[in-house]
Amino acid sequence: MTEIEGAGDRLVGSDRVLSVLMELASHPAGASLDEMVRFTGNPKSTVHRALASLRRAGLASQDGRGHYILGDEFLRLAFAHHEARPEHVRVRPLLERLAARFGETAHFAVMDGTEVVYRAKVEPSVGAVRLTSTIGGRNPVHSTGVGKALLAARVRTERDVVSWIGDRVLEARTPNTAVTATDLHLRLDEARRNGFAVDDQENEMGINCVAFPVYLSSPTEPSGAVSVSALAYRTPLPALLESVDEIRTIIAETTGIRERTA
């Protein structure tokens, strides 16, 4: 069940409509009215009215089976907003160049609390393999290269790392994931010294990456991080590490911004 944050079980009016919209967005193959009632936990009449409102606005529609899906207007608004983001416009040529050079997937992500959000992604023209990352999707900061590249700029001491973790238990996405404050601090410290972070099959087995913070809108705070994510058997981590100077050059040439040192 998807809920509007802070609203709990007391959704009213527009909150109910938004709750239905958010739930519908998690079912790309569509969902029937009864399924939406079950997914949201709201009364059938409420869900039906919410879906009707969304359909009138073009934010939802029905397919040939009568299942509800996101409407074309919703997709138009989402893609238009995404394409118009200044950061997206600036970073797209960089990702295209990295994907073409290495034949692997290039990402741009930002940090949102304890997660990274993927804002842009370019796959190679040939040999692309489906990764868990999707535009708008999220992954944990502590297990991803882009996450560690960004977190390293925010926390400097092990005490800072302990404070950032708080009372959470860091998820072990793979056997290689850093799940203690000490281990994470060591990896962040290495990222600061090197100017890039490494994901050695820490978020997804068989996938490794190198990630660099990029400064698109501020000379002191990274706007996000870019990464080259590779199939470990095809482009082993040592091969990526041998190319870090080339990646730095590509970032500087494409964005016009030189990498900052720690």
Rank of each mutant, 00 (worst) to 15 (best):
E3P: 12
E5I: 15
G8L: 03
L11S: 05
V12C: 00
V12G: 00
L18D: 06
S19K: 12
M22R: 11
P28C: 05
A31Q: 00
V37K: 00
R38E: 12
T40A: 02
P43N: 01
A50V: 14
L51C: 11
Q62T: 08
R65A: 14
R65S: 13
L77P: 06
E83G: 01
A84Q: 03
H88P: 02
P93G: 01
R97V: 12
F102E: 00
T105S: 07
A106R: 01
H107T: 14
A109Y: 13
E123D: 12
E123W: 02
R130S: 11
I135H: 07
P140H: 05
P140W: 06
S143T: 12
G145V: 10
G147W: 14
K148M: 11
A152P: 03
T157D: 04
R159K: 13
S163I: 12
R168T: 14
L170K: 00
L170N: 00
R173T: 12
T174P: 03
N176R: 08
N176P: 00
R187M: 09
R187D: 06
V198P: 01
D199L: 04
V214R: 06
Y215W: 15
S217T: 14
S218N: 04
A225M: 06
S227L: 09
A230D: 04
T235V: 15
P236L: 03
L237R: 04
A239W: 09
L241E: 08
S243G: 14
E246M: 12
I247M: 11
A252V: 01
A252K: 01
G256S: 03
R258I: 15
R260W: 10
T261P: 11
